[in-house]
């Protein structure tokens, strides 16, 4: 008995993952634009530990000179491509692996960035938190979809 490469996907996975990816593109695009334009212009309350500007202008807002927001935007574009209907229905195994690795990388990055926010900058950026939630949700969706995918023997 052989198992075909592509089998029945849960109905929700394509719209859910694609929607989350597009949301991530929107959030990271906004953060990237404000990073280059005027970080203080971020629509974000400055109450207590909530302080977007402190986070997005901190020395941790760049990695090797590249803005974290831009890295996030590139990642979000990649996730959008990997979560497109074409990608989900493709029998190419590398696409599934790329999706899993990319979403896992996003989740690991979330842990690092939350650590930086809480313990180095001592401030939380709400827009960044939106991206973090999206990234973790994408990782969860990817993992769950892999489990719910029904293999159909020939």
């Amino acid at each position: 008995m052989t198992v075909p490469r592509r089998s029945a996907l849960p109905r929700w996975i394509i719209p859910a993952s694609l929607g989350l990816s597009i949301l991530a593109v929107g959030l990271t695009a906004y953060l990237t634009v404000t990073h280059y334009a005027d970080a203080a212009a971020l629509a974000c309350p400055n109450t207590g530990i909530i302080n977007c500007t402190a986070v997005t202008t901190s020395s941790w807002s760049e990695i090797l000179g590249v803005p974290v927001a831009l890295i996030g935007l590139l990642w979000a574009f990649g996730m959008t491509a990997l979560n497109s209907p074409w990608a989900w229905r493709s029998p190419a195994r590398w696409i599934d692996m790329a999706r899993l690795v990319a979403s896992a990388a996003g989740a690991v990055m979330v842990i690092y960035l939350v650590y930086v926010e809480l313990f180095r900058v001592a401030a939380i950026c709400l827009w960044c938190t939106g991206v973090h939630l999206t990234a973790v949700a994408l990782f969860a969706a990817t993992l769950v979809a892999r489990q719910l995918e029904r293999p159909v023997p020939k």
């Binding site: 896992a104 989740a107 973790v136 990782f139 993992l143 892999r146």
Partner: peptide
């Protein structure tokens, strides 16, 4: 098994 990584995060 799928939920373990999420739970860890």
């Amino acid at each position: 098994r799928a939920l373990v990584p999420i739970a860890l995060i």
